[in-house]
């Protein structure tokens, strides 16, 4: 049985009166590539920062590799085994590429020098150039190199591909898959559904500080269905209170349902409501995301 690398119980974070994270129960199994999805401000970065001891939970608890995240001494043990790449990828701009690699390497005895050499070539990073002279994309590549080469058991990436061109994104995703195949657990937040579908085997969705989906990618693909039905008379949402129905949208005589399980019973229920036509369609992660995550501004950030 796979052990759990990250676990949180009722984890909360308040900033003044604003509740950024509201009782989050996470569980990330060892060896998985786990995507952490959510809109801007959903609580992804706050959660990651709490996991790494950068901010303090208001309440609740969490562990990484069995070490408590809210104790400084244990957080130190966590950070010896975890590589983290922050969202904004800001690095010491007064150091050169070579200096910051040497600096970071000194903290990690299992530093992967072969991968470092390989990535320096693949990313075309000039060793002598100061960080302040690098473009945003180059800086992102350097931050990722500094994370990938640590030889850690868990890699936490906050929006890893932001600011990268499509070729670089593909390269980064390949490296992520390669590290995962070597046994590294990957936990990454992203807005990019396509890349999540490409590499993740597990998906967690957070909306306004609450976990709204915790499932494997296979489950999402196999069990989630989009059911469309047309009725002779207009119907109401309350007619569709059946286990397995996640979202209901009615538009006059047409109903659109997102179902997570219990598909046969739901179809039978719709048929009993005298639907004229019923279509059961496979659904994409993007559709699940859009349905699960309530768009605050009217648009999901995809």
């Amino acid at each position: 049985m796979m052990s759990t690398v990250i676990e949180t119980v009722q984890l909360r974070k308040n900033y003044g009166n604003h509740e950024a994270v509201k009782g989050l129960n996470l569980s990330v199994p060892e060896g998985s590539v786990c995507a952490f999805l959510g809109q801007n401000g959903a609580g992804k970065s706050s959660t990651i920062k709490m996991l790494l001891g950068m901010i303090h939970p208001t309440s609740g608890s969490g562990t990484i590799f069995g070490h408590r995240i809210d104790r400084e001494s244990e957080s130190l043990l966590i950070r010896q085994r975890v590589a983290y790449v922050a969202e904004d990828k800001r690095l010491y701009d007064y150091m050169s590429v070579e200096q910051i690699i040497r600096f970071t390497r000194s903290f990690f005895p299992r530093w992967n020098a072969t991968l470092e050499k390989n990535l320096l070539q693949r990313f075309e990073l000039p060793k002598a150039r100061k960080v302040r002279q690098l473009s945003k994309g180059m800086r992102t590549k350097l931050a990722l190199l500094l994370g990938f080469c640590r030889g850690c058991e868990l890699l936490i990436l906050d929006e890893p591909t932001e600011g990268l061109d499509p070729v670089a994104i593909e390269e980064v995703l390949q490296i992520v898959v390669s590290l995962a195949s070597e046994g590294t657990t990957i936990f990454f937040s992203s807005h990019q559904i396509a890349e999540v579908e490409q590499v993740a085997d597990r998906v967690l969705m957070i909306d306004r500080g609450l976990l709204v989906l915790d499932s494997t990618m296979d489950q999402v693909k196999e069990e989630y269905r989009h059911i469309q039905a047309v009725f002779p008379e207009p119907v109401e949402e309350r007619d569709f209170r059946v286990p397995g129905i996640e979202k209901v949208r009615t538009n006059g005589r047409t109903v659109s349902l997102l179902a997570s399980h219990n598909i046969d019973s739901i179809v039978e229920h719709v048929r009993m409501l005298r639907a004229g036509s019923i279509d059961v369609l496979p659904t994409s992660l993007k559709e699940v995301f859009l349905e699960k995550v309530t768009a605050r501004s009217g648009h999901a950030s995809l």
């Binding site: 950068m54 400084e72 130190l76 922050a86 904004d88 800001r90 970071t104 903290f107």
Partner: peptide, 15 residues
């Protein structure tokens, strides 16, 4: 303020 604290705090070094 400079934005590099997250990189520093990600290293196994206590505050």
């Amino acid at each position: 303020q400079d934005g590099t604290s997250l990189f520093s705090l990600g290293l196994p070094v206590s505050r």
